[in-house]
Structures are given as C-alpha cells and as structure tokens.
Amino acid sequence: MEIRDFDTIFLDRDGVINIERPNDYVKKPDEFIFIDGACEAIAQLSGQFRHILIVTNQRGIGRGKMTLSDLEDVHRYMLNEIEKHGGRIDKIYFCTDLTSDSINRKPNTGMAFQAQSDFPDIVFNRSIMVGNSRSDMEFANKLGIYSVLVGDKYNKEDKIYQTVKAYYPSLYNFVEDLLQK
C-alpha cells in the first residue's frame, strides 16, 4: 500500500481513538481516555490526508444511557485534545439508531454516503477505514474501502483477519508503518 494512493481516512472512535468501555458507553468527557499514541497518530495523518472523518455507532443515545448533548461534550473534548496535538478531524458522523437495519448503522453504509455528500471528492477506493470491530471491516468491504483492523478484540484464529487488508495493534502502529512506505 502506498500512502499516495489514498486521500481520505475513516476512523472508528471507540477502540481506535479511545479506550472502549466494555458493556458501557463513553457518556462524558472524563470517561473518554485516549489510546496511547492516538493523538500523535491523527496529527501525522493530518498532514497526509485530505479528509479525516470519524464514523461511529452511538447506540447509547438511542438506549437513553446518554443524551445528544453528552455526546457533543465528549466530541468537543476529543477534538480539542486532538487539535492540541496538531491534528484535525474534518467531521464526525454518528448513528444513534437501535436497530441493525438502519442504513446509517455500521456495517451499513449510510454514514459513508453522508460523508461523500458533504465532501463530493471522496472516492471510496481511495479511502482507508481504520476500525476495531467486525462491523467496521464489513462497512469498509461493502464500499471497496481499504480495511485496517486495529486492537486486540479478536483472537488470532478469528476469521476476521481473512477479511481485512491489514492488521496493526493500534492506530499509532498503523500510522507509523504507513508513513515509512
């Protein structure tokens, strides 16, 4: 993979940028804990990609565990910290729907098409999706987006590794490798 072949990067949030809370949601800024190196990685990506977008399922709102205002507070905190490290996020797309058949809920592709509507120059086969879950990888594969799995959610024998283009322990490790090519 050559970095010059790509101009848009989609990032999942929980498990990629911040530590995922098992059986819970990040409901307020003090629960949002960055994964080591995530801010630095996004800063590096900011100089390389035209568009840096977050696509994140946020079912906690639909379940009444948090409000839209809570989510906005979390995202404001996240964006401020990323900017302090020299990075940027161009837009955050999220889906609060409860049902898996929602067009906007990953692995469905609605958030990608929202992004393409906002940024008409996005071409999916010139994009990368970095995520930590099966739904992230299915989202990417449905659209022809280069799929990068990060994290340790799945054991090494899991079939998910056969469906992705690349695997790295973290976003930081991916970016480190990407920029060396």
Score class of each variant (00 low, 15 high):
residue 1 M to C: 01
residue 4 R to G: 11
residue 4 R to E: 15
residue 4 R to D: 15
residue 11 L to D: 07
residue 12 D to E: 06
residue 14 D to A: 07
residue 14 D to P: 03
residue 15 G to R: 10
residue 18 N to V: 05
residue 18 N to H: 07
residue 19 I to V: 05
residue 23 N to E: 05
residue 24 D to P: 00
residue 26 V to T: 08
residue 26 V to M: 02
residue 29 P to A: 02
residue 31 E to W: 03
residue 32 F to T: 00
residue 36 D to T: 02
residue 38 A to P: 00
residue 41 A to T: 09
residue 41 A to F: 04
residue 42 I to K: 05
residue 46 S to G: 15
residue 47 G to T: 12
residue 51 H to G: 10
residue 53 L to A: 07
residue 56 T to V: 10
residue 57 N to F: 07
residue 58 Q to Y: 10
residue 58 Q to N: 12
residue 62 G to Y: 01
residue 67 T to G: 06
residue 67 T to V: 12
residue 68 L to T: 07
residue 70 D to E: 07
residue 71 L to D: 00
residue 73 D to E: 06
residue 78 M to S: 02
residue 78 M to D: 01
residue 82 I to E: 00
residue 82 I to P: 00
residue 85 H to R: 01
residue 85 H to M: 03
residue 86 G to N: 01
residue 90 D to I: 14
residue 91 K to P: 15
residue 92 I to N: 10
residue 95 C to K: 13
residue 98 L to A: 06
residue 100 S to M: 07
residue 101 D to F: 14
residue 105 R to M: 12
residue 106 K to Y: 01
residue 109 T to E: 13
residue 111 M to K: 01
residue 113 F to R: 09
residue 116 Q to F: 05
residue 121 D to I: 07
residue 121 D to L: 13
residue 125 N to G: 05
residue 125 N to Y: 03
residue 125 N to R: 05
residue 126 R to H: 11
residue 128 I to P: 08
residue 132 N to A: 13
residue 134 R to M: 05
residue 138 E to G: 05
residue 138 E to R: 09
residue 143 L to V: 05
residue 143 L to G: 08
residue 144 G to T: 11
residue 145 I to V: 14
residue 145 I to D: 13
residue 147 S to T: 07
residue 148 V to P: 06
residue 152 D to M: 13
residue 156 K to Y: 01
residue 157 E to R: 09
residue 162 Q to K: 11
residue 167 Y to C: 11
residue 171 L to A: 11
residue 173 N to R: 14
residue 177 D to Y: 14
residue 177 D to C: 13
residue 178 L to M: 15
residue 181 K to G: 09
